[in-house]
Design a protein around this nucleic acid. Structure first.
Lengths: 193, 193
DNA sequence: GCCTATTACGTTCCGCGTAAGGATG
DNA sequence: CATCCTTACGCGGAACGTAATAGGC
């Protein structure tokens, strides 16, 4: 099996038309017939039903199409990763940030980090805490900076900053009598998936 | 780029020795030098440092090795999937089952399902509820059968069976006086990732 | 009759092995 | 000097393109 054959098959499967697919991959049309045929022979699986006029995907063909597409994307990712690594890039870091963290000035910290470590591609999104947690859980982001109002068995929590939570109220308010021994303390946490 | 070249590179990278790698992939040793060289040229990345005597992986090489290994596994999986689909297999279903579900007799239900749908490869693990949830979240299992004492924004819950939770206590017990209008009701849920 | 896919055949390119070269411990 | 990687060269096979064949609309 060969990545080239996979590209050919994907083209045919997506176009459902050998001639168009041939144009798309810049190859003569009989070549496609031949190569896709070889692929099917090697797998021992009929991927397409050719009815002399129409091309259709078999069930196995649809399954294999998905896998093949994933595979080709992974291949591209692999060369990207290698080239980035060669260029000194250690990887990319997708950070998702809750509103509190954004307000408190952590964005400035990230900007400093970016300048200090240009070999890391740093991306930042800002979103509500709940969405942020889900984003990290799903792997769409690498770290989240949020206040720790969440539960997740998948994520690790680490405190990077503690900041006081202040209550402002009129002196005439009944509760204002008690001096402020604020037990409620807001913390910003650093979560790694 | 070619899957064969990836196999060659992986062999060299794992052995850190062209001659041994050549034996492993059943090819002459100069062929490996040539092909790995071609791969590096195509990527524009130096994957290995050859010091005439020792072979080492560069940083980019380590990155690419991981990707390549993953890619080769995916390739194998793809043909497996296609062949299984051809054979009428719709896929495999990994079920993880909490202790309550196991006790209640859902395993028998699964056995019935297996006989009714032989085109699905059914696998079953039994584990504590918390582990089961994590297993499904991580994608290692497809569905979990557990009592719904968990939180997860990633999983969908669906009730497949409700069963009463009984309290047994001596008649002399003070609480025994109240007649059993049991509000605590145990349910077994069906969770899809 | 036109469009589309397969089969046949010749050419070209590429991957492989053998042989030779160079470097290191 | 032995080991190990690289470069050089010739061969065989495979992929590609052109041409011819067959089958639907």
């Amino acid at each position: 099996m060969d990545l080239r054959q996979l590209r050919y098959f994907v083209a045919v499967a997506e176009e459902l038309h050998f001639t168009r697919a041939a144009r798309r991959v810049h190859v003569a049309q009989p070549t496609l017939s031949h190569q896709v045929g070889l692929l099917e022979k090697e797998l021992g699986v009929t991927l397409l039903t050719r009815s002399k006029r129409h091309v259709e995907l078999t069930h196995a063909g649809r399954i294999f199409l998905n896998e093949a597409q994933r595979l080709l994307r992974s291949a591209d990712d692999a060369v990207q990763a290698a080239q980035s690594a060669q260029a000194g890039r250690l990887g990319q870091l997708m950070v998702v940030c809750g509103p509190t963290a954004a307000y408190v000035g952590l964005l400035g910290m990230l900007e400093l980090y970016r300048r200090g470590s240009p070999q890391v591609d740093l991306h930042l999104i800002e979103s509500p805490v709940v969405d942020a947690v889900v984003t990290v859980e799903q792997g769409s982001a690498d770290v989240g900076l949020v206040v720790p109002y969440f539960e997740s068995s998948l994520l690790k929590r680490e405190t990077v900053l503690e900041l006081p939570l202040l209550a402002a109220l009129p002196k005439s308010h009944p509760l204002a009598a008690a001096s402020c021994s604020d037990s409620g303390e807001d913390r910003v946490s650093f979560n790694v998936s």
